[in-house]
Amino acid sequence: MSERRFCGLWPDRHSVRAAIPGGFIAVVATAMSILIGNALAAEPNGRPHKSMAENPPEVETAPNVEAAPKKLFETHCSACHSLELPRSQHLDRDTWRWVMDDMVNKYGATWITEKQQERILDYLVEHYGPQSQ
């Protein structure tokens, strides 16, 4: 609410932002996920995207299942920011959830489904938890 109210204060900036809508970013990120050959990023059931499987783009063969959460994290999170920051963190699940909620609700990563969020969280807690080096 405060955000909307504040945007109204700056008509110039508002119009600039309208030229790059969040929806466009979402579409691009989805297209990226598929193009990267990680059909898992778009298909939580783990099966490759059908049309891509029949006519694969110029990419490596589909990654194994173990690699999927890492690729989900890399694909979705790097759509906006570099991965150095999340990789420098040592957070518990509640705090990672808090970060994820901010990314989705405040910074526009609305294309990440709830299932994908959970799998990314699992990955983050396992690799970048409080005990991680």
Binding site: I20, I25, V28, M32, L35, I36, G37, P57, E58, V59, E60, E74, S78, A79, C80, H81, S82, L83, E84
Partner: peptide, 26 residues
């Protein structure tokens, strides 16, 4: 990521300023 040179041109053009995935922009 397994992309050829052509893909680089397409993707970087697509994302434009501020839209290049961070891993590549880095």
């Amino acid at each position: 990521f397994g992309f050829g040179a052509g893909a680089e041109m397409v993707l970087q053009g697509l994302f434009g300023r501020g839209m290049i995935p961070a891993a590549w922009a880095a």
